[in-house]
Design a protein around this nucleic acid. Structure first.
Length: 872
RNA sequence: GCGGGCGUGAUGGAAUUGGUAGACAUACAGGACUUAAAAUCCUGAGGCCCUAGGCCGUGCGGGUUCGAUUCCCGCCGCCCGUACCA
């Protein structure tokens, strides 16, 4: 065995330079070969790359390199999702300008990424905070305004009354502002929205065609859009109040109308607002409702409260019944009409509410086999199937029939020239609020003119640049208090006017960057020819946390960009893969402070792992495995890993073991194991280059013994690696490669090779195929070994090899024999043996004869090429 | 609360998608080489029972099936999203 160690640090930089000077990863739009667009979700420039990035970008890089070898013109770009709150937080805490902070981070992270040897086209790089980029985003915004896809309306925000500023949901902790600790209030502001609901139906139905998306993501998007068929019903008030004579509700369960025991209004319902004007108690209740954050999780887990208005509505199907009207904190103004009827027996929230306020609970859906006389609902609402009862003319109907009967009946009732009820399709999806009262985002290019109102800025006046001379000494939006930035002239009448100071949600930036990558130099947002050729992205890779919002917003943007003539592809991502997180153990010192993995040494004794501080010797407690985070200090810096072991080790480890869609635990041992394997391939390469006389190799006519076995294994491995990479099952590809290396290593012994010329040829072929297979995953090592073996050119530019189909078939196969479903033996038969032959052989086999003991089997199940089961 | 997912040896996981559970790797133990260590190579191993051999075993409890890690129902635990974190 050769002893020279592979010097990854030296070799990796050298090969990166070679790829760079030969520009082999730069992509031109004019290339005639079939295109393949592989994209990983671009990073937020938080400061340094983390292992999660390494995992994400390695996966994409394997696909990019593999597809390049397969003959595709591959687009594999990189950029920065560079606007957002952390830059402003850094500005407040460290007195650094958000722009400087961001671009410094980008420089650091770019340098880190370059060490990984990713096959990226860096010529196309941009950051969303580049004026060039947000200039084009402002153009898109104006086009959206023109098409009615952007508009203004009121919406609620989290308001910090002490800091006098709008808070993000994550800045609200237990209902209090994170900085001031003040109780957060809901406030209404006029804000900009994108009309994503215009596309609700298309966004929903096209999910069916996203066959290369994970089912779970498709399901989540369907549920998010939340299409439901229901009935909008007008309930008449028993007496007119403030000019209101009725309240309209939306329900998906009109079949349960006879189980209604109350009506519920949102705290923001127009009637609630009217009533609160001269009802101090109600006004106080509404204010109480507003002392909550705006996030759904918070609203829905909060205890349910109601306020009895004392008003009544008349039951639409039985005028002798009157229902009380409550204002309740769990009814959202955003969904339906902001009013509901409560049927406690068949809705859990309504039931909780009814129990709290002592309202009646009348079941109207009878489960199958239940007794109508005794069926009651206690603490759990019945939401299942059944037959309608306690419901007059609906009794005995199925749920669906009753829904239809109620709809038909109320449609026919005319009040004030309008039917009392309308069948309606409702979506849970709401329009996308994009206004942010922050500095570090894309300015919304609109002007507020005292005479003309809200007017779009002229395109020729774009870009509306962010001013640099700002500070974060005071709370609130620096754009608001900038001495001059707001001042402008009205694009319509030319008089003095003010700029909009809201900036755009950073999700806007990431909703079209994939389109911009196809022609980042273009003066328009897109080069239509380029974008239509490159899109959709063939393989998009990123975290599951983006399953809904980012992906849905991007799908909306593609549609909106189609409507405004910027492209014609409406589904941006044809293939989607969601990778898991990288997690790590946590460590705590004696005083309970978090300690980073770099500060400690872990040892194992008698199966018990313990840790001590490297410098102080202090005992360290090993804690649970958690998502890597700065606050818990359980992060691993990829640059440290690359300096210690090299980029290929980091890449290989991130692909090994864990299925890519699942979380992976970063362990030092795992990294060392990956590194040992890299050294093993290098030693194997040195051995082979020493033992083989490459000039004397000749393809043998026939193969037998170990040479045949190795060649079969090599080609089978090639076929498997190919199919697993196609499925992004990298961990399985890795396991196959381990096995192949074990086999090559045992064949590549000097004494064996000296005796067997055909084995020499097979080993040479196996090594070449091995390196080609490894190249997408460990590209630097593959180059180094390729050149060590004296092969021509760069591995990175070789074509993907084709497996020899003659090597993939077996003459004989071994079938497991089961008796009563348990494995009791094996049977070797010809691969093409038919059922009868197998059955006869099985019945004559030793374990079966023994188990049957002269009796006849009850049943024999033969699954060709799989298994035989004898039932006794 | 709601929506989605995951759970297999000491550990990461594999299992041709209903057909031999534990491939491959990590950690561990023993051996070889070495003055020694590292590296490397070889060997062992799911648990239990005294062996032949057998029993148990894929979070827990049920079900469907000749056969279930895989499908169905109900629990438990953890994770993601929940519209202003990105």
């Amino acid at each position: 065995m050769a002893n020279e160690r592979y010097n990854a640090r030296e070799a990796e930089v050298r090969w990166q330079k070679t790829w760079d000077t030969q520009k082999i990863f730069q992509t031109t739009n004019e290339d005639p070969r079939p295109k393949y667009y592989v994209l990983e979700m671009f990073p937020y420039p938080s400061g340094r790359i983390h292992i999660g990035h390494v995992r994400n970008y390695t996966m994409g890089d394997v696909v990019a390199r593999y597809k390049r070898a397969k003959g595709f013109n591959v687009l594999h770009p990189m950029g920065w999702d560079a606007f957002g709150m952390p830059a402003e937080n850094a500005a407040m805490q460290n007195k650094i300008h958000p722009k400087d902070w961001t671009y410094e981070n980008i420089a650091t992270m770019r340098a880190q990424l370059k060490l990984m040897g990713l096959s990226l086209d860096w010529e196309r790089e941009f950051a969303t905070c580049d004026v060039d980029y947000y200039h084009r985003q402002q153009m898109l915004f104006l086009d959206f305004v023109e098409k009615g896809l952007a508009y203004r309306k009121n919406a609620k925000v989290n308001w910090d009354p002490v800091d006098q500023t709008v808070l993000a949901n994550e800045q609200v902790i237990d209902g209090k502002g994170w900085r001031s600790g003040a109780e957060v209030e809901q406030r209404e502001l006029t804000q900009w929205f994108f009309k994503i609901t215009d596309f609700a139906d298309d966004l929903l139905s096209e999910i069916d065609n996203l066959t290369r998306w994970p089912d779970k993501v498709r399901l989540m998007q369907r549920n998010w859009i939340g299409k439901s068929e229901g009935l909008q019903v007008r309930f008449q008030l028993s007496e007119e109040v403030h000019g209101h004579s009725e309240v309209e509700i939306f329900t998906t369960r009109p079949d349960t109308l006879f189980g209604a025991s109350f009506m519920g209004l949102s705290a923001d319902h127009p009637l609630t607002k009217e009533l609160a004007k001269d009802n101090a108690e109600l006004a106080a209740f509404v204010e109480e409702c507003h002392k909550m954050g705006t996030s759904a999780a918070e609203l829905e887990t909060a205890e349910k409260f109601g306020f009895d208005t004392g008003l009544k509505v008349v039951h639409p199907l039985d005028s002798s019944i009157e229902l009380p009207i409550y204002v309740a904190n769990f009814i959202l103004m955003d969904y339906g009409t902001g009013a509901i009827f409560g049927c406690p027996a068949h809705d859990q929230r309504d039931l909780d509410f009814a129990r709290k306020y002592g309202l009646t609970v009348t079941p109207v859906v009878l489960p199958k086999d239940a007794d109508p006389a005794s069926f009651t609902v206690a603490d759990e609402a019945y939401t299942g199937e059944g037959t309608i009862f306690n419901s007059e003319f609906l009794d005995g109907m199925s749920i669906d029939a009753a829904k239809d009967a109620v709809a038909s009946k109320l449609e026919a009732v005319i009040i004030d020239d309008k039917p009392q009820a309308l069948r309606k399709t409702q979506y849970r999806l709401r329009d996308w609020g994009i206004s942010r009262q922050r500095y570090w985002g894309c300015p919304i290019p609109m002007v507020h003119c005292p005479d003309c109102g809200v007017v779009p800025e002229k395109k020729e006046n774009l870009p509306i640049k962010l001013p640099d001379d700002i500070n974060f000494d005071k709370p609130g939006n620096p754009l608001d208090r900038h001495p001059t930035w707001r001042d402008c002239t009205c694009p319509k009448c030319g008089k003095a006017a003010k700029r909009e100071t809201d900036t755009m949600d950073t999700f806007v930036d990431s909703s079209w960057y994939f389109a911009r990558f196809t022609a980042p130099w273009e003066t328009n947002p897109t080069d239509k020819k380029a974008v239509d050729e490159w899109l959709p992205v063939d393989q998009y890779i990123g975290g599951i946390e983006h399953a809904i919002l980012h992906l849905l917003y991007s799908r909306f943007f593609a549609r909106a960009m189609c409507e405004t003539g910027h492209m014609t592809v409406k589904e941006p991502f044809q293939g989607l893969f969601t990778q898991g997180m990288v997690v790590h153990e946590t460590y705590k010192g004696e005083d309970g402070r978090w300690v980073s993995p770099a500060e400690i040494t872990v040892s194992e004794k008698d199966g018990k792992r313990s840790a001590v501080h490297k410098e102080t010797g202090e005992t360290i407690t090993i804690g649970s495995i958690e998502k890597m985070s700065k606050s818990k200090k359980n992060t691993v810096d990829p640059t440290d890993i690359i300096e210690t072991y090299g980029a290929d080790t980091a890449r290989w480890f991130m692909l090994s073991d864990s299925p890519p869609e699942r979380d992976v635990i970063w362990t030092e041992a795992g990294a060392e194991g990956a590194h040992r394997f890299i050294q093993r391939i290098w030693r194997l390469t040195l051995d082979v280059s020493e033992f083989l006389d490459f000039s004397a190799l000749e393809k043998p006519e026939t193969l037998s013994g170990e040479a045949l076995a190795l060649r079969k294994l090599t080609h089978k491995t090639l076929a498997t690696v190919e199919s697993t990479i196609e499925q992004l099952g990298f961990n399985r590809a890795v396991a196959q490669i381990y096995q192949l290396v074990n086999a090559i290593a045992s064949a590549a012994k000097k004494e064996k090779l000296d005796k067997d010329a055909s084995l020499c040829w097979v080993v040479d072929e196996s090594m070449q195929l091995l390196l080609l297979m490894c190249s997408p995953m460990m590209p630097h090592l593959a180059e180094e070994c390729w050149s060590q073996l004296g092969k021509e050119g760069l591995v990175s530019t070789q074509s993907w090899p084709q497996a020899d189909s003659a090597m993939l078939t077996e003459d004989e196969i071994t079938l497991p024999i089961q008796i009563n479903g348990k494995k009791r033996g094996e049977l070797t038969v010809a691969a093409d043996a038919d059922k009868d032959t197998i059955e006869k052989a099985v019945l004559a086999s030793e374990p079966v004869l023994k188990a049957l003991d002269g009796k006849a089997p009850r049943k024999v199940i033969v699954v060709p090429k799989r298994i035989v089961n004898v039932v006794i």
